[in-house]
Structures are given as structure tokens and as C-alpha cells.
Nucleic acid binder design. Structure first.
Lengths: 238, 238
DNA sequence: AAGTGGTCTAGACCACCGA
DNA sequence: CGGTGGTCTAGACCACTTT
């Protein structure tokens, strides 16, 4: 076997196998994995190879390692899911906890940008969630969320919690792992002005997000408009 | 020796030593490091320990590893320094290469936000660079850059290239490794409107950046205002 | 004390690069 | 071909957690 083309390191093959088990929930969130030794024995590789695979999963936040205890499938707790993707902060960097109120849900056909972002066919349905989020008791963010109706059956007839990604995981078995956001400055329209309590034409920060699951499939499209007179969107570049 | 308090893994001590050598330029940018075997022999540790240290430097982009060739101190090339921190893109994600024109430099006392961000005393000087950056031939970004004058002697009497971080490295020995950015939406003032060719009060995306060197010291404060009618600021969240 | 992940070592072999 | 980093193994010991 001198063939080089299809070469793939052992630890990556092991890694792929673990990802599959997590994705199909044979290892459900919060569960402790077998020990490295046990996994190594099961797969017939060395402990070091299992470790390399688990380390790479840990850097992606798919698992958590706790010395002396074991390795655990990452669970989406409300606090974590909030801070992982919520980039709004006070100028200077202080973290914020928004509240969510007035959420309204609806089932309707996808719009064009939603079809494109969510890779939906022409006449498919989405569940739309609209809400205003408050910071320090004042309205600050107005957002519209759209998810494919076929993967979120009944979501339109259910109360919406503040941290919606925990709901995706607990009730629909969907893990939001990554997201792309595009930011631009726009002028507040009449509806924005009323919802956020600002003058019409006030500059707002518009954030358009597409969120992806463990398999890289688009799960959610979201557009938020933020009053950034007292808030900022904070980014760390490395 | 049952003491646990001052425990620090060997590979991290090795890593720290390498960082020091890079920071004080005993290993200048672009240079190939000794091989892992040679470093291991020099330090009296195993090759695996050296490897772990180098791997961690590689994930921070302090060094680059090239299989079959060696490990090299990362050099700030114009293209790289541009794309590492330049987050403006076309809607949909396509990368952009801006040009920079009309750069003007000035030496003056630091303003209050600059003193705070750059940790300067009350009456210290900065070099200010103002310029308008173009995309597709049209003005798109107006920015003001301030750096501590004492670390950038003569910068105010020198032409400013498009990719300024390559200049920081080559002429001042300063590596910009990370940066914080805060974004908000603002209304274009008269100067913005004129420089960018937009109507007054047009919503602009304002980006305030503080950049840091290898030792975590603030190196640069920068404020950019972008016309986002045809552009976006793109972020990937993991 | 027992079990987990974390560190460290030593050595073998593989893939990649350039002469 | 020789030298580099990349992978894989096997085993020892350390630090952390729970029993």
C-alpha cells in the first residue's frame, strides 16, 4: 500500500467517529464519555490517539474535559448559549444580560433571503419569532428569527425562552455550534423607532446572523437591529 | 517536594522561553527555528515537549510550521496583516482588498480616549494618521489612527503604506498580535459626508479598535467610519 | 486508595520538501 | 537521498476528584 492519496491520520478518523456519535445522540449532552483507556481499547488504538481526538473536540467546545473526573459532552446551558453568541456589551467591554419580552411566533412561508440562507426550496415554511430585547429595563434590540418549520415542529405554539438555543438542544436535539454575522448601519424605520423608543432615522446597528449545527447545516436566520447609543458590539481579533 | 502551588508544566515553561526570544527579537521574523530535535537537546527535554510548546505558538500564529521544511517565526506580510484584522467584506462573504489614499500624519498630544486606550500619561504625544480607504475605486472608510509617539519616532515624517502593521514590524519591531473592536452605528457628520461622498446623517458603521503587541501592551487606537450601503462587517462565531 | 485526565519521555515510522 | 515536521505507540509518573 504505497498509495498516498487517501491518507487521513488515525486520530482524525477517531475524531470523526466521535463526532458522529455526538451528532446522532448516542452520546447525549451532559453524559460522561468512557475513559480514554476504555475508548482506546474499544477502538484498538493507543490512548494517545484517543487523547488527540478528544483534545480537538475540546477546542471546538463539543466536549469538556475535567481533570480527575472525565470527559463530558458539552451541554448548552442558558448562560453559556447566551454568552457564546451574544456580542453586545457596554462600551469598555462589560458583559450584559439582556431580557427578552413580547415574543410573538408565527408560521409562514420563507422569504427570499431566508430561503437562501437556510437552503430551503421555493415554497417551504419557517417559524418566525419576533421579539424586543431589553437591557437595563429599556428596549435595545429588535429581532426577527426564522427557522425551518420542518425541523422545528410545534415551535410556533410554544412559549419562547430568553435563551432560545438551549430550547433547540433540549426539545429538538439541535446544537448550534457556529454562526456567521454580517453587520451594517441602517436608519431606524417607523416600526423600529416605535419598538425601541428612538426617533425615526436614528442610526441602528443591524446584525444578520446565519447559525449552523454540528453538521454545518443552516439552522436559523436572524436579523437584529440594535440601538447602539449606549451599547456596542464587541469583537476580539487574534 | 510535595508542593503543588507553583506547578507549571514543562512545555509551558519552554513555551514562555520561546515567546521571550521572539519578543526580544533574538529570533527575528521570517527566520527558521532550530529543529525540534536541536531545541530539545539544547533545553534538555524531550522532542515531544518542544513540539507541544511549538504547537501552542503555532495556534497563536506566532510561528508557522511547514512539514518537511521547518518552523518559522511568523512574518507580517502585507496581505496577511491586511486580512487578519480587516473584517469588511461584501454581503455574502467575499473578501475585499481596500486601497488607502490621502494619508496625512501629524504629531500632537493624545486625546482623552487615546490616553485611556493606550495607557498614556496626561501630556504625552501621539502620531495621528488620517486617511480614506477606497473599495472598488469609491471612498468607503474614513479612519483616524493614533499611536504613541515615543514608540514610533519619525512615523509622522514618513509615507504611510496601505498595510501599516507590516511597517510597525519592519521599522519599529512591533508585532500587532490581537485587537479589540467595538462597533456602533452613528450618523455621518459633515466631514464624514464630504470624505465618503454620502449625504449628511447617513448611518455609518463606526469601529473603534485598540491593538496590542506580543506583551499585551496597547499599540494603536483607531477609529473607522464605514459606509455600509454596499459593504458589511463580517464575523464568524464559534 | 482508586480512577480520571494531564504531562513527559523515548522511539518508530510516515509524509513532505529540497538538493 | 537526508532532514524536517507529523503521526502513533507504550509506558511512567503527576495532579485532581471522589470514595
Amino acid at each position: 500500500m504505497t498509495e498516498t492519496p487517501g491518507f487521513r491520520p488515525l486520530y482524525q478518523q477517531v475524531r470523526d467517529m466521535f463526532v458522529r456519535r455526538i451528532a446522532d445522540r448516542s452520546w447525549p449532552p451532559g453524559e460522561a464519555l468512557p475513559s480514554e483507556q476504555a475508548l482506546a481499547a474499544e477502538l484498538g488504538v493507543s490512548q494517545g490517539t484517543v487523547r488527540k481526538a478528544l483534545d480537538s473536540l475540546a477546542t471546538e467546545n463539543l466536549v469538556e474535559r475535567r481533570q480527575g473526573k472525565g470527559t463530558f459532552i458539552t451541554e448548552v446551558t442558558p448562560a453559556r448559549s447566551l454568552f457564546k453568541f451574544f456580542r453586545i456589551a457596554r462600551p469598555g467591554g462589560e458583559r450584559l444580560t439582556p431580557t427578552s419580552e413580547e415574543a410573538a411566533t408565527k408560521r409562514r412561508r420563507a422569504t427570499r433571503p431566508e430561503r437562501k440562507a437556510l437552503k430551503l426550496a421555493g415554497n417551504e415554511y419557517v417559524v418566525e419569532i419576533t421579539r424586543v430585547r431589553h437591557v437595563d429595563g429599556a428596549p435595545a434590540i429588535r429581532e426577527t428569527i426564522a427557522v425551518p418549520a420542518k425541523r422545528f415542529a410545534g415551535l410556533d405554539k410554544r412559549p419562547i425562552p430568553n435563551t432560545i438555543y438551549a430550547l433547540y438542544q433540549s426539545d429538538y436535539g439541535i446544537n448550534v455550534l457556529s454562526a456567521n454575522e454580517e453587520l451594517r448601519a441602517v436608519a431606524a424605520g417607523p416600526d423600529d423607532a416605535k419598538a425601541l423608543g428612538v426617533a425615526a432615522r436614528t442610526p441602528l446597528l443591524e446584525i444578520t446572523r446565519t447559525a449552523f449545527d454540528i453538521d454545518g447545516r443552516p439552522i436559523e436566520w436572524r436579523r437584529s437591529r440594535c440601538d447602539t447609543r449606549n451599547l456596542v458590539y464587541a469583537v476580539t481579533l487574534r
